[in-house]
Design a protein around this nucleic acid. Structure first.
Length: 969
DNA sequence: CGATCCACGTA
DNA sequence: CGTACGTGGATCGC
């Protein structure tokens, strides 16, 4: 059956624009070409793989502000970002290329592409009932057009969405899509919808009631907040619905025949001319293949004397050596998403998975793995070996192995059980590790795993020291896109390999009746476990290709992958914590809390739950006549659901002489103490490992958007230090007998990074002079001598110094400088600052510009963060994008720096101070445990590594402290 | 029991 | 209406 592909042009243009590394330019005309390159790559892949009979591209006509939607609702798409200049230029180029290929480009004035698509679909349904239609788009609005023969199609993943898939993913039929969209709204297009209802709730309600009308008729059956929200906002729903319903009676000039894919109708000479002009040699080759017999003869010169070969010398830009390529991405001709053909195809079928049950089988597999994975000869690596462990618990330090799975060939994997419900059928731990261990500890065999840190620790607990880690698909995914909501294997497998993994819940169940992995029958546990290493292997292959295509191979291989072992070491080491000290402090605070509760009850007009911000707000801000009644104080600040009762508010009330009640001050103290007890004193004691007497917190490498690490279970990166009661908690973190804790931290790391990146002479000079940086900046800004700087001036300068790397605003600074500082005054301080430190201002602007031009910013090591907010038409959102752009470059570069230091320390310690252990990283600080006698040597070694981690334009300064516990430090 | 909000600890 | 996190209690809905 014939198929018509309708490409949603701008969706694909936009996607290519962001998927492909910017910086590509035509060697002939110097015009930007990266989007054109990406779009043509997509188009050719479609032509090659799907061989459509009919193809058309649909785009919005220029000046689409006059659509019927903006007439009925002026806010429609008011959030839309203006397209970047170089996008527009390339769209025109793509349209020209399409015409040369004789692909129709449908654009109807004042009509959105979606409506044009809807019109074509409806017309074809009437005229050509048997025609298959694939709409190349992922826009959920188009779901309403889906029927038995009309699908949405995503060429990047080859994923097709039809009636069934729509039902599977959302539970709705195509005719219900409009109702669902109306209910949930669309912040991107500014379709209102009901606030508080997202896609999940909307889909559920529409499924349940069948339609929006039925829902509204039975609104009394919808309980709680959801029902109230709909009732309150029901008037907006007809408008929302009219915005999302596609118009299918547009006047559009289209015949199926005009869309016939026919290389014979292409203007082959002009087409290849243009492609060569753009410098796309590979695409030219593919186009020749598509044109087949219609391709012009090589060397014919294109008739009109165009450029068909040997383009002019590429534009090469000079980059100063110290510029680390920050704003100078090399103009490489690469895809960020290299072809995954083959990999994706194998995915749908279950692989060749075996469960090994005898010594002989294990021996045979190990031999074949060694054969395949051992280096072929000097410099020629063998195959990659993916490994994965199954364990009895999720805490790797105290867990037991259930088995190990291994894979070295995509689609094939084995599971070697160690603990299972069928112990008689398999080998014991010693027998397995004696055979598999040598593969894992052999540094010449390159290994990969998904979240290798976990497996490295679990294996170390079993006595196996993994060596030769060459990759980690979770880390690769993070390097490709740090802002992904998750880098879990099953999610990546679906997104990248088009493969749905066996859910772990199939094996161990869910909720409180969960079983352990070793209790699951091998018949299902085996394939599940084998799949893990197979998928890890295939993800590593696919993602590392993306890493390389993005030019991030060095960051990945020399920083992030080696860091996995360092973090495994940190977690393995843990930090010793004294439970008695925690308990003593807890008892002490509980007494104070008890007394406070009593005083709070006396201060309050009636009983209430002190822990409930909502009830507290009622007590403070309701009037005596309201119900529930309250003290009638003036609301200071609002949250999105009511009056705020946060510190700022309570402090203001405490200082307000007209406020008589002691309640705010008492609540402040109560909150401080209960926070310490609940979040730290109790939780930390519970986190102490019974066997080691230490806390083995997790350090995560793939969580933050900026490149920082994060810590959890428990979080050891937010142990109190600012208040005295809080800092006391650090007394419970202790060194082993005869040892000390040594802590070293970078002084002013982010400001120094800023000085380096901006190369601002004044800031550099201030750091080189080694004076108090806040005082120096104050002297500069206020034009005073260093010795004349007042405390107030220094404090303001400090505030600005911190604020500047967050993307400070006058409003924010004024608020922080305290009452009596006007926005105008704050503005003036910032302006003075930017004038005195013009290099910084220029740098901040470069960050924002970088985000605009490329859609992402990059750190010193080239780490990227997409900043989609920068293109928002919404002012607040765009301002957020600007702050993110600035902060990410500075914070992320500082994170790069300390990661380099950690690697160097990790490598040097075994020879320089083998008795020392690295325990914690707190963003700019490292904590070690070392025998007291080796403290001096360790301090020297670490200081040297930290200060020499990178050569910056300013000196790096490290300060240190030590003691038998973390507080004496 | 999970999701969401508020509040608050750190760099 | 400066950034980046993780956690705990309350609350809501399933």
């Amino acid at each position: 059956m014939a198929t018509l592909y309708l490409i949603d042009g701008h969706a694909q243009f936009f996607r290519a624009y962001h998927a492909i590394r910017p910086g590509m330019r035509s060697p002939v005309t110097d015009e930007p070409t990266h989007m054109t390159f990406g779009f043509m790559g997509m188009l050719l892949k479609l032509l090659r793989q799907d061989r459509p009979e009919y193809l058309a591209v649909v785009i919005d006509a220029a000046g689409d502000r006059g659509t019927f939607r903006s007439q009925i609702y002026p806010e429609y798409k008011a959030n839309r970002k203006p397209a970047p200049e170089d996008l527009h230029q390339q769209v025109e180029r793509c349209v020209a290329l399409l015409k040369q290929m004789s692909v129709p480009v449908l654009a109807v004035a004042e009509v959105e592409a979606d409506d044009t698509i809807a019109t074509v679909v409806r017309r074809m349904r009437r005229e050509q009932p048997d025609l298959e239609i694939k709409i190349v788009s992922r826009d959920k609005d188009l779901g309403q057009l889906v029927d038995e023969r009309t699908h949405l199609f995503d060429p990047q993943s080859d994923k097709t969405l039809g009636v069934e898939e729509l039902f599977d993913s959302k539970g709705v039929r195509p005719d219900q899509v409009v109702d669902m969209l109306a209910l949930m709204g669309d912040p991107v297009d500014n379709v209102p919808g009901v606030r508080g209802i997202g896609i999940k709730t909307a889909a559920k309600l529409i499924t349940e009631f069948g339609s929006l009308d039925a829902l509204l008729a039975n609104l009394d059956k919808v309980k709680g907040k959801t029902g109230e929200a709909i009732a309150a906002q029901r008037d907006i729903l007809p408008l929302s619905k009219s915005l999302v319903v596609l118009k299918d009676d547009v006047v559009v000039d289209f015949t199926l025949e005009s869309a016939r894919v026919d290389p014979g109708r292409a203007d082959a000479v002009a087409l290849l001319d243009a492609i060569h002009q753009l410098g796309f040699n590979r695409i030219a080759q593919e186009l020749r293949g598509w044109l087949g017999a219609h391709a012009p003869k090589v060397g014919s010169g294109g008739g009109g004397g165009g450029v068909t070969s040997a383009p002019a010398a590429p534009v090469v830009r000079a980059a100063p050596a110290e510029d680390f390529g920050l704003f100078n991405p090399p103009p490489e001709d690469v895809f960020t998403a290299p072809a995954l053909d083959g990999l994706a195809m194998q995915a749908s079928a279950r692989g060749d998975y075996r469960t090994l049950r005898t010594v002989a089988e294990v021996d045979a597999f190990v031999a074949s793995a060694r054969q395949a994975c051992a280096p072929k000869s000097a410099g020629v690596p063998g195959a990659l070996l993916a490994f994965d462990t199954e364990t009895t618990s999720l805490n790797p330090v105290s867990t037991h192995l259930c088995g190990i799975s291994l894979a070295f060939e995509p689609g094939k994997a084995v599971y070697i059980p160690i603990r299972s419900p069928e112990p008689e059928t398999h080998l014991d731990e010693a027998a397995v590790l004696a055979r598999v261990g040598p593969l894992l500890t052999d540094a010449t065999i390159r290994k990969t795993a998904h979240n290798a840190k976990f497996d490295i620790i679990a294996l170390r607990a079993a006595g196996v020291r993994v060596a030769g880690l060459a990759g980690d698909s979770m880390v690769a995914s993070y390097v490709v896109d740090a802002t992904r909501s998750t880098h879990k294997m099953d999610a990546l497998s679906e997104a990248i390999l088009e493969h749905r993994c066996i859910p772990i819940t199939d094996l161990i169940g869910t909720g409180r009746h969960q079983r352990r992995f070793d209790e699951a029958p091998l018949a299902i546990a085996g394939p599940y476990a084998a799949e893990d290493s197979d998928v890890a292997l295939r993800l590593a292959i696919a993602l590392e290709a993306q890493v390389d295509a993005m030019g991030l191979g060095e960051l990945y291989r020399t920083t992030e992958v080696p860091l996995v072992e360092v973090l495994a070491e940190l977690e393995w080491n843990g930090i010793k914590v004294d439970p008695d000290e925690l308990e003593r402090q807890r008892r002490g605070l509980e007494v104070r809390i008890g007394a406070l509760r009593a005083r709070i009850e006396q201060s309050a007009p009636r009983p209430f739950n002190i822990d409930s911000p909502k009830q507290l707000a009622e007590i403070l801000f309701n009037g005596p006549d309201d119900s529930p009644s309250g003290l009638g104080l003036k609301v200071v600040k609002r949250t999105k659901t009511g009056a705020s009762t946060d510190v700022e508010v309570l402090e203001k009330l405490t200082l307000d002489p007209t406020v008589q009640t002691l309640l705010p001050a008492q609540i402040l103290e109560y909150r401080q103490l209960t926070k310490l007890v609940g979040t730290y004193l109790v939780a930390l004691r519970e986190a102490i490992d019974a066997k080691t007497g230490r806390i083995h917190a997790s350090f995560h490498q793939t969580v933050t958007a900026t490149g920082r690490l994060s810590s959890s279970d428990p979080n050891l990166q937010n142990i109190p230090i600012r208040s005295d009661v809080g800092r006391a908690i650090r007394r419970a973190f202790v060194a082993a007998p005869g040892h000390v804790l040594l802590s070293l931290d970078y002084s002013q790391i982010e400001l120094r990074v800023l000085a380096h990146l901006s190369q601002d002479p004044s800031l550099i000079a201030a750091f080189e002079a080694g004076t108090d940086i806040h005082r120096a900046v104050a002297a500069e800004v206020y034009g005073a001598a260093l010795s004349d700087v007042t405390d107030e001036q220094r404090s303001a300068a400090k505030m600005v110094n911190f604020g500047i790397v967050y993307g400070i605003t006058a409003w924010g600074l004024a608020r922080r400088l305290g009452a009596g500082t006007s926005n105008e005054r704050a503005r003036q301080i910032i302006d003075d600052y930017k004038r005195r430190f013009a290099g910084i201002d220029a740098f901040l602007q470069r960050c924002v510009q970088e985000a605009h031009e490329h859609g992402f910013v990059a750190t010193i090591l080239g780490r990227r963060r997409p900043v989609p907010q920068i293109l928002s038409r919404n002012g607040a959102e765009r301002a957020l994008g600007e702050r993110i752009a600035i902060n990410t470059v500075v914070q992320g570069s500082a994170a790069d720096l300390i990661k380099c230091a950690m690697l160097r320390i990790y490598r040097e310690l075994p020879t320089r101070v083998p008795s020392a252990r690295m325990l914690l990283q707190i963003h700019d600080e490292l904590v070690f445990e070392v025998p007291a006698c080796d403290r001096v040597a360790l301090e020297a070694a670490v200081r040297e590594a930290m200060e020499g981690a990178m050569q910056l334009r300013v000196p790096l300064v490290v300060s240190s402290s030590y003691g038998s516990n973390w507080a004496e430090d």
